[in-house]
């Protein structure tokens, strides 16, 4: 991408292709952009892989493919069990695992050649709207799970001890809302920042030097998916935990 394109996009750099609207869904008015098509692509790939892999599950894994899927699921469970205990890990595994895969592949989609500049391919997690959506899902899930498991006792930590309630209640509520805000902003700032770094280095010194930020992005893409899921797991575990 030539240098002047950066300026042409008002300095927005990577992620600007999100503005190319392919079509608008009538009635609801939702616009389909590169971000949506990328998300759909990721979903399609993962779901097809999952479907192919689990279509003929054998008691004794006969294919490496099945062994790979089993290792993935089992690995997720072991990992989450180490943070939030085996029982919680089993209960929240589908949610946390899906979140991790979705974010990881979204992050990595930005490393594909032309991402952000080719129509139809933009890393979804480089858009704040997307990460805010994911964080909202986490927020709603945490509240739902907390209330469902513990009923009104879920709110106890905000009004206990009672004489501090006027202070604790607003703080508790603010904290609940800061969490998704921080989750979404941390993710988008990292991915977007990383993409911009790659782009900037690529244009400043096209040879050799861009390898540094590219390798960095491979690491950070995984770390960010990891930390988003890790924090979500902790929030879920705290929501269902009885008095500490």
């Amino acid at each position: 991408m030539p240098f002047w394109l950066l300026a042409a996009h008002g300095g927005e750099g990577a992620g600007a292709a999100a503005r190319d609207v392919f079509f608008t869904i009538p009635v609801v008015g939702l616009k389909v952009t590169s971000i949506q098509t990328t998300m759909w692509g990721i979903m399609l790939v993962v779901l097809v892989v999952a479907w192919l892999g689990t279509r003929r599950l054998e008691r004794v894994p006969r294919t490496r493919f099945q062994a790979f899927l089993e290792l993935t699921v089992d690995g997720f469970e072991t990992f989450f069990a180490s943070i939030i205990g085996r029982e919680n890990a089993r209960a929240f595994l589908p949610f946390l695992g899906s979140l991790f895969i979705f974010i990881l592949l979204s992050n990595y989609s930005g490393l594909l050649p032309g991402a952000g500049h080719v129509p139809g391919l933009t890393a979804p997690t480089s858009n704040w709207g997307v990460t805010a959506g994911l964080a909202s899902v986490v927020f709603v899930t945490v509240q739902y799970v907390g209330i469902k498991r513990r009923g009104l006792r879920y709110f106890k930590h905000m009004v206990d001890p009672w004489f501090l309630a006027p202070l604790l209640l607003p703080l508790g509520i603010i904290e609940e809302f800061v969490r998704p805000f921080a989750l979404s902003l941390r993710l988008v700032a990292n991915i977007f920042g990383g993409e911009t770094v790659v782009l900037a280095v690529l244009m400043a010194v096209p040879w050799f030097l861009p390898v540094v930020p590219l390798l960095l992005e491979v690491l950070f893409g995984a770390i960010q998916a990891f930390i988003f899921t890790f924090l979500t797991a902790i929030y879920l575990a705290t929501a269902v935990a009885e008095e500490h």
């Binding site: 589908p94 858009n127 704040w128 997307v130 994911l134």
Partner: peptide
């Protein structure tokens, strides 16, 4: 880095669908 409600709504829909299907199929 933009904040667009359009993307927010889409990502919620997409993720929920993704989560339900992945839970069912994986």
């Amino acid at each position: 880095m933009e904040f667009t409600t359009n993307e927010l709504i889409w990502s919620v829909i997409n993720f929920v669908v993704f989560f339900l299907l992945l839970r069912r199929f994986l």
